[in-house]
């Protein structure tokens, strides 16, 4: 398994001016994953983009946790549907071009 870079949760919280309890809530909602090593909390690198988006939604748009949860699920669904549209468009193209 490829090694994953870990970002210190404390450092992240300090630089983003948030409480760690907020991150813990996000984890409990199943919205992000956190890793604990020797009693220190870390954020896996692949969670960073998701986490930053959540913070922007929270900060910029004043959306609470439940709202962000709903938004992220809908965005995920949109993304799946967009992939499906691409797949179907490619199929359709076969009949249009041949």
């Amino acid at each position: 398994m490829p090694q994953q870079a870990l970002i210190s949760a404390d450092e992240f919280c300090t630089s983003h001016n948030i409480e760690f309890s907020y991150m813990r809530n996000l984890q409990e909602f199943g919205m992000i994953e956190l890793v604990t090593r020797h009693e220190v909390n870390y954020i896996p690198e692949n969670q960073l983009e998701k986490l930053e988006r959540i913070l922007r939604l929270h900060d910029d748009l004043d959306i609470n946790l439940e709202g962000i949860h709903a938004v992220t699920q809908l965005l995920q669904r949109i993304s799946q549907m967009q992939s499906e549209i691409i797949r179907l468009q490619n199929r359709l193209r076969l009949y249009e071009d041949f």
Partner: peptide, 15 residues
Amino acid sequence: YRKQARKYHPDVNPN
């Protein structure tokens, strides 16, 4: 502003 920002925010309108 909040109403319009929610509608058009890039995070809720990817691509």
